[in-house]
C-alpha cells in the first residue's frame, strides 16, 4: 500500500530550485509514495520571520500542521530548513499547552485548530524510518558503485538535536551516509559535512557566507568526492548556484556538482537524469551522470 503524506515542498523547491520539486515527484512515483500537497500552506519563515515576531512564525507553522492534521497524515518536507523550523515550532507548542492555546486563538480566526499531534518528517528521515533502507535497496536498478558522494546535511536538520529528535534510537545525523550506501555509492567522510553552508548570512556578510560554502566544497573535493548531496535546497543555493562566486573568494577552481537528495535516490532507482532535471544545475552534473551510466 502506498505511503501517504501531507506534503510541504517549501518555497525554494518551487522557486530557485524547481529541479528539486520535479525530481521528488519522479522519485515518489517509483517509491509508491502519495504526496498530498498543501497548496494553502505558507513559508515556515525560515528562522528569519521568528526574529521579529516569533508568535507569528509559530502561528503560520501550526496553521500548516493543522492542515496535515485535518487530512490525518504525517507532514513530509524536502528542505532541512523547513524541517528545523517546523520541528522547533512543534516542540514549542507540544511542551507549552498555554502557548498552543494562544496560537489556537489566532488560528480560530480562520476556523482552524491544531491539537499538537502532527509528525513532521524530512524525506531523508522518511526514507530510513518509513520506507526502510532494505526496501530502497530492493528497488535500486542502477547501483552507483563508482560514485563517491559527500553528504551535506544543513544545520537545521541536525541542531538543536533535542528538538529534532536525534538520539541513539534515531541516529538521524547518520541517515545521509546510510542512504548513500543504500544507493550503492560510497560516502565521503569530511569535517564540513555537518557544518553551515553560509546561506543565512549571504546578504549580511557575503564574503563569510561564500567562504563557508567554499571551504566545505573544497574539503569534500580534496577527500575525493565526485559530488555532494544535500537534503536542503537553501544549502544548494549557496553550494551550487553560488559556487562560482565561492571559488572566486577562495581563489581556487571548485567544479563540484551538488545533487538534491531525491536526485541521488532517483539516479539509483533508474530514473532518467533528464527527468531528475540533473541538467538544471549551475555546476554541471554531467560527470555524475556519466559515472552513473557506466554503473
Amino acid at each position: 500500500m502506498a505511503l501517504r503524506y501531507a506534503y510541504w515542498p517549501g518555497c525554494v523547491a518551487k522557486g530557485g530550485c524547481p529541479e528539486l520539486y520535479e525530481s521528488m515527484a519522479a522519485v515518489a512515483e517509483v517509491l509508491d509514495i502519495e504526496l498530498i500537497e498543501l497548496h494553502e500552506a505558507s513559508c515556515t519563515g525560515f528562522g528569519v520571520l521568528s526574529e521579529q515576531n516569533p508568535e507569528l512564525a509559530d502561528t503560520l507553522n501550526c496553521r500548516t500542521f493543522s492542515m496535515a492534521e485535518k487530512l490525518g497524515l504525517p507532514l513530509l518536507n524536502i528542505c532541512s530548513t523547513c524541517q528545523g523550523v517546523m520541528s522547533a515550532a512543534n516542540y514549542k507548542v507540544q511542551h507549552d499547552q498555554a502557548y498552543l492555546d494562544r496560537i489556537n486563538g489566532n488560528l480560530a480566526e480562520e476556523g482552524l485548530h491544531y491539537s499538537g499531534n502532527v509528525t513532521v518528517k524530512n524525506f531523508l528521515w522518511a526514507l530510513v524510518e518509513d520506507i526502510g533502507l532494505d526496501v530502497l535497496r530492493s528497488k535500486v536498478k542502477r547501483p552507483l558503485h563508482d560514485l563517491w558522494m559527500a553528504p551535506f546535511y544543513g544545520c537545521y536538520i541536525l541542531r538543536p538535536s533535542q528538538k529534532l529528535g536525534i538520539d541513539a534510537d534515531k541516529p538521524r545525523d547518520t541517515y545521509l551516509e546510510q542512504v548513500i550506501e543504500a544507493c550503492g555509492a560510497s560516502p565521503v567522510d569530511y569535517y564540513g559535512k555537518t557544518k553551515c553552508c553560509g546561506f543565512p548570512i549571504v546578504t549580511m556578510n557575503r564574503v563569510n557566507s561564500l567562504s563557508m560554502a567554499g571551504d566545505h566544497l573544497l574539503e569534500a573535493k580534496g577527500k575525493g568526492a565526485d559530488a555532494m548531496v544535500t537534503p536542503c535546497p537553501l544549502c544548494h543555493l549557496n553550494l551550487d548556484s553560488q559556487q562560482p562566486a565561492a571559488a572566486g573568494i577562495k581563489h581556487q577552481a571548485i567544479g563540484l556538482p551538488v545533487l538534491h537528495l531525491p536526485q541521488l535516490v532517483g539516479l539509483a532507482l533508474g530514473i532518467s537524469p533528464k527527468e531528475l532535471r540533473l541538467n538544471r544545475h549551475v555546476v554541471s552534473a554531467e560527470a555524475v551522470v556519466m559515472k552513473a551510466a557506466t554503473a
Binding site: 518555497c11 525554494v12 518551487k14 522557486g15 530557485g16 494553502e40 500552506a41 505558507s42 513559508c43 519563515g45 525560515f46 528569519v48 520571520l49 526574529e51 521579529q52 515576531n53 503560520l60 549571504v202 546578504t203 549580511m204 543555493l237
Partner: peptide, 26 residues
C-alpha cells in the same frame, strides 16, 4: 542595517504571497 532589511523583505514576501521570493531579498 542589512539584517533588519533582510528580515523585513522576508516578512513582506510571505505576507504578500505566502512564500519567500529569494530573488528580491538581496
Amino acid at each position: 542595517n542589512t539584517g533588519v532589511r533582510h528580515a523585513k523583505a522576508a516578512a513582506d514576501s510571505i505576507k504578500a504571497s505566502g512564500r519567500n521570493y529569494e530573488l528580491t531579498f538581496y
